[in-house]
Design a protein around this nucleic acid. Sequence first.
DNA 1: GCTCGCTGAGAGACCGGTTTCTCAAATGAC
DNA 2: GTCATTTGAGAAACCGGTCTCTCAGCGAGC
Lengths: 348, 348
Amino acid sequence: MAVGARAGRRSDDAVEPPRPTATISRVAEAAGVSRATVSRVMNGRSTVAPELAARVLAAARALEYAPSPVARSLALGRTATIALIVPDLANPMFQDVLRGLSLAAGLDGHRLLVAESNEQVEDEEVLAVEARRRCDGIVLASPRLPSDDLRRLAPLLAPLVLVNRELPDTDVPSLSVDHGAGVRDLVSHLLSLGHRRIVYLAGPPASASNRDRLAALVNVADQGRGFELLQLPCGAMFEDGHAVAGEVVGTGATAVVAYNDMVAFGALSGLHELGVRVPEQISITGFDDIPFARFTTPPLTTASVPKNVLGREAWGRMKALLQGESAEQRIHFRPRLQVRGSTGRADA
Amino acid sequence: MAVGARAGRRSDDAVEPPRPTATISRVAEAAGVSRATVSRVMNGRSTVAPELAARVLAAARALEYAPSPVARSLALGRTATIALIVPDLANPMFQDVLRGLSLAAGLDGHRLLVAESNEQVEDEEVLAVEARRRCDGIVLASPRLPSDDLRRLAPLLAPLVLVNRELPDTDVPSLSVDHGAGVRDLVSHLLSLGHRRIVYLAGPPASASNRDRLAALVNVADQGRGFELLQLPCGAMFEDGHAVAGEVVGTGATAVVAYNDMVAFGALSGLHELGVRVPEQISITGFDDIPFARFTTPPLTTASVPKNVLGREAWGRMKALLQGESAEQRIHFRPRLQVRGSTGRADA
DNA sequence: GCTCGCTGAGAGACCGGTTTCTCAAATGAC
DNA sequence: GTCATTTGAGAAACCGGTCTCTCAGCGAGC
């Protein structure tokens, strides 16, 4: 009679032994050695007489023994797990970071715990602290927490790695994107196509990346490279870009630099509905290079942010920290200019 | 002088005590009670004299004590964590399942471990078994493992919940999509618009969902509802749909039922390049309703699969299993017909 | 006033590993 | 052949909790 919840086939010869998951004690007993010896054999620690080792391994195999990760975690003080906290799992940006991190950590035998803060600042802190206790380290992607809170939390969360956010005056490694360089590349591209009147569709005012991009734009414009920079308040979503299409036409600009790809998509769609042809009448650029940027009509010229590299490199830093090394701080990744069909000559 | 790796400000008054993370023993000592009592107070178990409880809580607060999740996991035999194994984190389908699951499990105080098998069948088994040992249960999304292997593994992985995959003759709960119903809705919609010549862009032959969709199509066609069903081998990616656009035009069909949204996007793009107008000349439908389906030009009519509901309900089943209850098996979710701009009257 | 029963809290076993400490046996040196 | 040194393996402490068992102390009942 099976003891477990689920009975197998109802035949008497197949009485599955309850098999209460093999423990190191059972293996030790079966092999006639001490638990310490089993542990040594399983971990290849110290030396064990070949004959004994063979007996232990045979017993382990027979009992289908595998050491309990939980017990090891407690004894060793490490879980071989790290946590990733993201504000919004639906954001393609974070999805790619998640992928890169998961892949890289997995190759080094580490598991990944994910938690979503749903853009709730207060949840972020609780989640991170809670997660840290069951993991060896924390990766915070675009944390919304104020810097002061983050600075206060940093020692508690260490080893800590930041993605898409910096924390000056600390030794917390951060991986972020050089928005300024990306914007400069986009503008240079547009200038080389002959555009002289460019409108920026601004992101959320509170967004640090929006400030970075705008500052870079203003900076380039001030360098006297002979073009006029306009600005329209917009947002971060498709709908924002869509809504502002009419105004874009009104500005008489020949090129649009959108805050991000989503806004660019919205603008593209809005302009299409207004009968404005892209790129013949107006050129459009995005930022991020989310997967779908390749698939719009026309495909989107954008600054390609190496998001999976961000995730991968975040693991690199984390790994260093876990090994007690210090990790380089403040790495910036320069986006790659990805020219596609949404930009063309100003005089086309 | 600070003992930890990172020294704080270099001032003598701020000698942070090493603070070796408070344990239950320290709290017990500080409060002058036994460890058992601290445990009772922290968990609200049994009754403790109010005066003692207050003393314990004060000591806990003073020491910033929080019980170690790892130690609790070992003692209690549960981790309050479940694992999600997906073949491909980049697939929007799995992203939404991840979100739904993460959110629902989080609300019940459970954490989520994610692992990606990268479509490698052999990795899938190893990952799942390994993950199961550090978690209380496993959710497998679209597992690629053959049913026999899955059946063999099921007792090992239990509690186990399947998403987008069924396992007949077992008591493993599964959440899946009623592809047939979705296809029937799409066809009914197209028929009501007057289409009488419909071409199906087939997915990968090995895909079970492709077989389901095709079978439903053939079934509807055989019911004599007065339309002609054509078929083109295609694939699952944007490029597949894009490549087949010319052939679509060649068939003379007035409507396209694509295997999924990605293929529909590809076809949309290909037809656009050929100067064929959608929906005026040809109507197109997708399947899945991935986030970007709303944002194409024109927006895509599709069968909206409630992917986050899949994730949410997967947690529902898992929760039941964790509580020792039995969970309903084989739940099917009927996609919702989402009519957008990519379909129109046949005679337009 | 004494016993019975209940309540509250401590002692200690346990979860399943790792690791230090200890000691017996084997090896090597002289 | 004897003693010092190395090697191999067991005993036991430990990681940080939970929980059963036990018992002291108290109020109720006769």
